[in-house]
Computed example of a mutant assay.
Amino acid sequence: MRISTLSQNLRIDTSITSIQRRIADAQQQISTGKRSQVYSGFSGQDTRLLITLKEQRTSADSYINSINNTKVKTETIDATLQQMTSVAEDLRTQLYEQVEGLFEQSSLALSTFATAAINQMSNLLNQTTDGKYLFNGTDTDTQPIIDPATTQGAYAQPALAGGSAGIIAAAEAFFDVDANWNNVTTPAPGSLSVRVDQGVDLDFGELANDSATFEEVFDVLYAFSNTTFTAGDDAEYRNLLNWGLGKIEAAIDLMNDMVGQNGVVGSEMATRQEAHKETILLLETQIGKIEDVDPYEAVAEFQTLQAQLEASFQTTAVLRNLSLTKFI
């Protein structure tokens, strides 16, 4: 009869150690639901695929985070643009409500409204989100509109008695120079941008010194807030009203366009965000097929290994209890 040799005992010990290691792996699979906690626990092909899938998931998550952060800005811009449009529409109403023949009385109400609207428009254009200015392009740390009291103090308007043309020229010349009222550089910084997908960037935002919209509104507001009406100025005041109405009508149309463009950006971001969410769901499914373990299979594997370990211990005990004297 063969007697167990040292090498046989070593092989049995190695086998027991291997089973114990596999049992530990099975216990971890049961507790975590994952095949392995490290990439080395998967086959080479699965490891490469898993890394690729997780990189894609990380990219999709980053796009969603960028979109969420930008949505706060675009929604604030949208609300601000709508408020500024309302101010311009109220100004248009005030201009329409001037009663010919009673300009001396009605002009005072318009002047009072214009002064208040200057402050409101300035505050709106200085709107911030997370401490960043939204209407100064990429220069988000700089307030685009300075204190309106400073510009009102600096603006010298000719008397209406000298003709409406002089007031118009003074207002337009004053606000054509950004340094008089606007802290943005010349030329102004470009619009803001957000990456919503691989190779896809969306531009958004408006500039406070936009000469076709906000400057136009300020032209009219300052002209009427500083107008001193005296008897006999009706004809010149009427010319000033027609000039103001033309500017405000054009500015309102452009601000409505801005609101529409901002809405298009918001809609595109929402579409991209939903697509990324669907992509993540698909990626999670694919990752799960590689990473996740069937709990029933893991338990069955554990029980099988446990039985093998017990049998190995019993065999080892018997073999190590043998001695040559028992067979003499």
Score class of each variant (00 low, 15 high):
188 A>D: 00
188 A>C: 01
189 P>C: 04
189 P>N: 02
189 P>G: 01
190 G>E: 00
191 S>Q: 13
191 S>G: 05
192 L>W: 09
192 L>T: 08
192 L>M: 13
193 S>H: 11
194 V>M: 05
196 V>G: 03
196 V>R: 03
197 D>C: 04
197 D>Y: 05
197 D>M: 02
197 D>W: 05
198 Q>N: 12
198 Q>P: 01
199 G>S: 06
199 G>L: 12
199 G>A: 08
199 G>C: 07
200 V>I: 15
200 V>H: 11
202 L>E: 11
204 F>P: 05
204 F>N: 04
204 F>C: 05
206 E>T: 09
206 E>V: 07
206 E>D: 08
207 L>P: 00
208 A>N: 00
209 N>Q: 05
210 D>C: 09
210 D>S: 14
210 D>L: 10
210 D>H: 11
211 S>K: 15
211 S>G: 12
211 S>W: 08
212 A>R: 14
213 T>A: 14
213 T>N: 12
213 T>Y: 06
214 F>P: 01
216 E>M: 12
217 V>I: 15
217 V>W: 07
217 V>H: 04
218 F>G: 02
218 F>M: 11
219 D>A: 06
220 V>Q: 03
221 L>N: 04
221 L>P: 00
222 Y>E: 00
223 A>N: 09
223 A>R: 08
224 F>P: 01
225 S>W: 01
226 N>R: 11
226 N>P: 04
227 T>D: 01
227 T>A: 08
227 T>H: 05
227 T>G: 00
229 F>L: 14
229 F>V: 15
230 T>V: 15
230 T>C: 06
231 A>P: 07
233 D>N: 15
234 D>T: 06
234 D>H: 04
235 A>D: 10
235 A>C: 00
235 A>V: 11
236 E>H: 03
236 E>Y: 02
237 Y>T: 09
